[in-house]
């Protein structure tokens, strides 16, 4: 089962930093990280940190999709968010397997991963905490924008994973990376393109509709209107 939040119980490890203390049994060092991974002619401690960040982003993406799927008023978006969420969880699983298959720990949370998680946490919070000052249609747009932003970084991560794979020496490790990129890459292209296109459609729908732009439209009417989008 995919781990969406590494904890001590799942075997989480981390590096200490100036202001981050880690219990000794859960601590890991760059040397240990590098030693756990095969020598691929790269700074493998850095690679471990990067993969942890990419995996964390997939995990946070799964949380984002769950949240927006639960809150959207549009059945088409809801269905799509659920589908993309499941695919995102699958991507997290692939990354976990990739890391574990190299001898790494999928529950290692790197400093880079903390940075990504911090941004992702605020991203998903941005879709709800200011909800009171947004109308129903704007809330839908904010949720979709969050998806677009998340997918943008996700896409960039997998492009980078593909580039790293090119640098690996021929062999089993390179093949595993190539298979992962081959499976996930096209889906990431699709996710990002869908989010970009749907944002455009949503803008055009509202821009072209007098009813949508009407100041003072009742919330119930807006919900009904949102429900009918894309149908």
């Amino acid at each position: 089962m995919t781990i969406l939040v590494p904890t001590k119980a799942t075997g989480a490890t981390a590096k200490t930093a100036e202001m981050t203390y880690v219990e000794p049994a859960q601590q890991v060092t760059d040397d240990e990280l590098a030693a756990a991974l095969p020598d691929a002619g790269l700074d493998m401690a850095f690679v471990a940190d990067f993969l942890s960040a990419a995996l964390t982003h997939e995990r946070c993406g799964r949380h984002l999709y769950r949240s927006v799927a639960a809150r959207t008023n549009n059945p088409v978006l809801k269905r799509r968010y659920e589908e993309l969420g499941q695919e995102t969880e699958r991507h997290a699983e692939i990354l976990e397997d990739l890391i574990a298959g190299m001898g790494g720990n999928p529950s290692y949370v790197s400093p880079a991963a903390r940075g990504v998680e911090g941004a992702d946490t605020k991203l998903v919070e941005s879709t709800s905490l200011l909800g009171g000052s947004l109308d129903v249609t704007t809330r839908e747009m904010v949720m979709l924008q969050a998806v677009f932003l998340a997918e943008s970084l996700d896409h960039a991560h997998w492009q980078t994973i593909a580039e790293l794979a090119d640098h690996l020496p021929d062999g089993d490790l390179k093949d595993r990376w190539a298979r992962a990129v081959g499976e996930v890459g096209p889906e990431e292209d699709e996710h990002l393109e869908w989010a970009r296109e749907t944002m455009g459609k949503m803008v055009m729908l509202q821009a072209a509709s007098g009813t949508m732009a009407a100041v003072g439209a009742k919330a119930e009417e807006l919900v009904e209107t949102v429900r009918g989008w894309f149908s």
Partner: peptide, 14 residues
């Protein structure tokens, strides 16, 4: 001011 625990690795009891 002290360093903080890491939320992923911290023991739930801690």
């Amino acid at each position: 001011v002290r360093p903080h625990y890491d939320t992923h690795t911290v023991d739930p009891l801690s």
